[in-house]
Amino acid sequence: MVDTRRHRFIIGIGSQRAGSTLLHSLLEASSEVFMHPVKELHYFDTLYGYRSRQALQEFSTRQLMREVDRIVSSKDLSFVKNNRYRCYLRTNRLLARLPIEKVNYLDLFRPNLKNHQLIGEVTPEYMLFDEESIIKMKEVVGEDAGILLICRNPVKRFLSAVKLMNSYNNLQMDDAAANEWLEGMLDSDNNWTKAQEKYNDYASAIELYSKNFSNFLAISYDELIEKPKISSQKISEKINININEKKFIQGTEKIINNLANDYSISEKIILKLHKIYEPNCIFLQDYFDHELLR
């Protein structure tokens, strides 16, 4: 059995459409942290009922079947021997087959535990936790875990979420359809807009996580992109990990996840969103002491 005291967790908790994929990539490329090959594990949010257990099992099954097809059709199987790839396969098998209560969180990082004292993942949904869930998570990951939250302009994050929703559901909306759909969503009581409100509630996430974790850092997406050197220094000092500054800066120049909104959204809707999220914007501008431009 692996001694949990030998390992320290570094966890990105969000937010969705604010650079979580970039954060995962930067930590993997520039630090000694073993970032899980399944970028969003969805372990704790599923365990605590924030995410459907069926959704996690179905997603993990699809990932696993895709890799089975890859292995069957491949002429060169050398990649299977890679411990990172074996971790990817093993994790999807566990999450696809076992009830989440039967899965040990640390066990998801095998077979890479022996050679890595620092291990981590990024799952945006963790930022939605109430204090009870955060305390439960702390019991697993330990008080010394490093917690990172990337914050983005709420209006632009919201519009980027529209793009993600359209792509994920293959709706193929043009500008007119996107505007009509979005206006209808803003004028109705629905789960999607409620979810976006939660992802824009940075104030609550910052308050609860900073209260429960001493190694907590909220960083703005703007500063991450525009001042990567400063960002790398803040992460290194606050989260207590070594960062290769050169690789970190290079990583910010290769944004993996396109966060831009491709739709031409009407001025009416933009103004409405600014009114809705004005308190969130003011909070972030005060907290980071600069305008959120992206």
Rank of each mutant, 00 (worst) to 15 (best):
V80L: 15
F34W: 03
Y263R: 03
A205Q: 08
F248H: 11
S188H: 03
V162P: 05
T252E: 00
N82V: 08
F9V: 07
I13C: 11
N82D: 10
A218K: 00
R84I: 07
T4C: 08
P154E: 05
L293I: 15
E237I: 01
F79I: 11
K247Q: 14
L292W: 06
L148I: 15
L64S: 04
K229G: 06
A18I: 07
L64V: 03
L217M: 11
V68F: 13
N257L: 04
P154W: 12
F109G: 02
I150K: 02
L27I: 04
E143L: 04
D189R: 08
R97E: 15
K39I: 05
F34Q: 02
R5M: 06
F129M: 14
N212R: 00
T123G: 01
E291K: 14
F59K: 13
Y221F: 14
Y85R: 12
L208M: 10
N261R: 01
I150S: 02
K275T: 07
R62I: 12
F9Y: 15
Y126P: 02
L56I: 15
P228H: 15
I135A: 13
N190E: 05
L56Q: 12
E143I: 02
Q196G: 01
Q172R: 11
F213Q: 03
T61W: 00
G19Y: 00
E143V: 05
V72D: 03
L182H: 06
L47S: 09
W192A: 08
D69F: 13
M185S: 05
R62F: 10
N242V: 10
N104V: 04
E180T: 07
I10S: 07
A145L: 14
L217H: 14
S60F: 01
L98R: 01
H7K: 15
D144P: 05
S73Q: 12
A18E: 02
N258A: 12
R84D: 08
F288G: 05
F213C: 11
R97S: 13
E58R: 12
D144V: 07
L186F: 01
I270M: 10
S78G: 07
N212C: 04
F34D: 00
P111N: 02
I241Y: 04
F9L: 08
H7T: 04
R62P: 02
R51K: 12
S60T: 09
G19N: 02
N92H: 14
L47M: 14
K138T: 11
E278S: 06
G12M: 03
K246N: 07
E245T: 10
A203C: 08
L56N: 10
L159H: 06
L271P: 01
P279Q: 08
S30F: 04
D289R: 07
D76K: 11
V72Y: 09
I119S: 00
I119D: 00
S25F: 00
D189Q: 14
R17C: 02
E237F: 05
K229I: 13
D201R: 14
N257K: 13
I135T: 06
E223R: 03
I71F: 15
